[in-house]
C-alpha cells in the first residue's frame, strides 16, 4: 500500500492518526494542560483517566478546537491543525460528545443527526436521511426519531451524543464521560455500542470515570494529573502503576 506523503507511521508500522506534541494551555495562572505528548494509531482505543480537574476535558477541547492551545502541536493524519476552528476540524473528521449532553433541544432526534451528516460529513440530503435513519436504529433511538431532543432521558441523550457524533463520520471520536451518571445496565448497553464503533475501525479517545466500562474497550490508558501525563500504556500496567494507584485511586502502594 502506498502511504500518502506527509503521513507518519509508528515504529511498528501502524499509521499515526493523531499526534499531540508538548501541548500546553493555561487559563491565567492555572495550567490546565502541561506539556502533554502522545500518539494514536488509526483504529486504536485510548482511555483517559484522571482525578476531577486533571485537564481531561480541556485536552478534548484543545483537540476538537473548542479552545485554542498556547504552545505545542496537534497533527491529524500528518496535517498540523494549528489554530483551525472547531467546525473545520469537524469536517476533517474529529467528532466529539459533551460530558453534559448538548442536544439541539427543540429539534427532533433525527434532525440532531442531520446537522452532523450534512455539515461535518458533508453528505447530500438523500445520503444524510439514509445514514441518520440507520444510525438511529443502531443506537436504539429509532422510536424517538421525531421527538424533540430536549425531552429525552439521560441514557437517550447520551446515546444521541454518540449517534450525532457518528453521523459526522469521524475518523477520530472523542467520548467525554459518556457512561457517567448511568446505571450499570445502561452503561453496559453503551459499552456494546462503543465496541461496534471500534469494530468499524473508528479511532477513539474515551474519558471515563467508570473504570470497568472503559477497561472493557480500551487497548491503552493515559492518566492525567494536574494537567500532566503521569502514565500511558497497556491498561493493566497503568492500573498497577504505583503513581496512578496513589493519585487516581487513592490507594497507598
Amino acid at each position: 500500500m502506498v502511504t500518502p506523503s506527509g503521513q507518519q507511521t509508528q515504529a511498528d508500522g501502524k499509521e499515526v492518526l493523531l499526534s499531540v506534541r508538548n501541548l500546553s494551555k493555561s487559563f491565567g495562572a492555572l495550567k490546565v494542560v502541561q506539556d502533554v505528548s502522545f500518539e494514536l494509531a488509526r483504529g486504536e482505543v485510548l482511555g483517559v483517566l484522571g482525578p476531577n480537574g486533571a485537564g481531561k476535558t480541556s485536552l478534548f477541547n484543545l483537540i476538537s478546537g473548542d479552545i485554542a492551545f498556547d504552545t505545542g502541536a496537534i497533527t491529524l493524519s500528518g496535517t498540523p491543525l494549528g489554530r483551525e476552528p472547531s467546525y473545520r476540524r469537524a469536517m476533517r473528521g474529529i467528532g466529539r460528545t459533551y460530558q453534559i449532553p448538548r442536544p439541539y433541544a427543540k429539534m427532533t432526534t433525527f434532525e440532531n443527526l442531520l446537522v452532523a451528516a450534512r455539515f461535518a460529513a458533508g453528505r447530500s440530503e438523500r445520503e444524510a436521511y439514509l445514514s441518520c435513519a440507520a444510525l438511529l436504529e443502531d443506537c436504539g433511538l429509532a422510536g424517538k426519531a421525531n421527538l424533540p431532543a430536549g425531552g429525552l432521558t439521560l441514557l437517550d441523550r447520551k446515546r444521541l451524543e454518540l449517534a450525532r457524533a457518528l453521523a459526522g463520520e469521524p475518523k477520530l471520536l472523542l467520548l467525554d464521560e459518556i457512561a457517567g451518571g448511568l446505571t450499570e445496565a445502561e452503561a453496559g448497553q453503551l459499552v456494546s455500542l462503543i465496541r461496534q464503533v471500534r469494530d468499524r475501525g473508528i479511532t477513539i479517545i474515551w474519558i471515563e470515570h467508570v473504570l470497568h466500562a472503559v477497561m472493557a474497550v480500551a487497548e491503552r490508558l493515559l492518566v492525567l494529573s494536574f494537567g500532566e501525563k503521569i502514565a500511558d500504556g497497556k491498561p493493566q500496567e497503568v492500573i498497577d502503576n504505583p503513581d496512578v494507584r496513589r493519585i487516581y485511586m487513592g490507594i497507598e502502594a
Binding site: S64, D66, P85, S86, Y87, A90, M91, G95, R96, Y98, R102, P103, Y104, A105, K106, M107, E111, N112, L114, V115, A116, R118, F119, A120, A121, G122, E125, R164, G168
Partner: peptide
C-alpha cells in the same frame, strides 16, 4: 441545508460548531 444549521445554532451554537457549522 442552511436552515438546518440556523436551527442548530438557535439551540446550541457550541454543538453546531463541533458538527461542522461555521457559526
Amino acid at each position: 441545508r442552511l436552515g438546518l444549521a440556523m436551527t442548530a445554532m438557535r439551540d446550541d451554537p457550541v454543538s453546531a460548531a463541533s458538527q461542522g457549522v461555521n457559526v
